[in-house]
Amino acid sequence: MKKIVLVVLVIALLSLGGMTLAQDGPFRVAIVMPSSTTDISWSQSIYQGLLDVQEAMGGESAMEIAFTEGMFDVAAAAETLRGYAEDGYDLIIAHGTQYGTSLFDIAPDFPDTSFAWGTATDTGAEQGLSNIFAYEASAEEGGYVNGVMAALMTKNNIIGVVGPVQAGDALLYINGFIQGVKATNPDAELLVAYTGSFSDVAAGTDVANTHIAAGADVLTGTSQMVVGAIEAIQTEGGYWFGTQFDQSPQWPDAVVASQVYNWAPTLADMITRIQSGELGGVAYTLTLENEGQTFVFGNVAIPANVLAAAGEAAAGILSGDIEVARELPQ
């Protein structure tokens, strides 16, 4: 029996890679995220934002970043969040809606520590909490612009959407995208299918291949599982519209445009407020207007009329002429 326990222990220890990094610095930020800092989507985007702020503030001596990634397990994430709070970090970010319940348990115990979470709008003000920031992205805005471009670039007039789970900013993005397509090219056929997972790459491939088999030549999708889908559409010679992070370096022939989350302004604002003694109470929204969402283009040659239409759409959203609904009419 001892033998068995030993073997299991050794194997279990081997499998726990060092996942927590910590450095010294005056302003200390800690973040817990569901996927990895290299997922070229949700988690990598905010990590990149933190790195940008760090550079602007003067490097590691001015700001410390500690992160724990791959926290699919919400209970484990809660322990990690509490651990960071006990270690005295100035700002602790729970980068996922699923961590909300835990965060609201922990925050009251550390009134001098600032917390942030998203995508969410609840800062806990109703419960009398003043040390929580909330953030969300109006993903439907960027989705709409991507949809406008996709609608003009499809040759088959068939566009496929590879969705993870019908929730959160993934759903907002997809809803915006659909509205963009329909407003621009009402004849285009929209194929929508979900994988049921944020991380199952092969499931993303399966959905993408089915879209392609059904005739789609332009695809979009969101979450870290879409890498298989992008590879599939690139192999087919079709186009991809990305979100959350710039995916064109890996797939230069397929990725037309990526709506990228730019977290730096939001994060910088939070830090400024914390340093002036304001520990929470603000709900941020990443929009085109506040440059929380930007567009990155890859190597794919984009016809001038497409770019123009995208510009018009963005301008329309900024001016309020175009109103993008968060939910689709049933």
Binding site: S35, S197, S199, D200, V201, A202, A203, T205, V227, G228
Partner: peptide
């Protein structure tokens, strides 16, 4: 076959229970 052939990519835990 999952990574090289079916998807053409590798991502963490991509077998997802298969």
């Amino acid at each position: 076959s999952l990574s090289m052939a079916l998807t053409g990519v590798f991502q963490e835990n991509m077998t997802a229970g298969r």
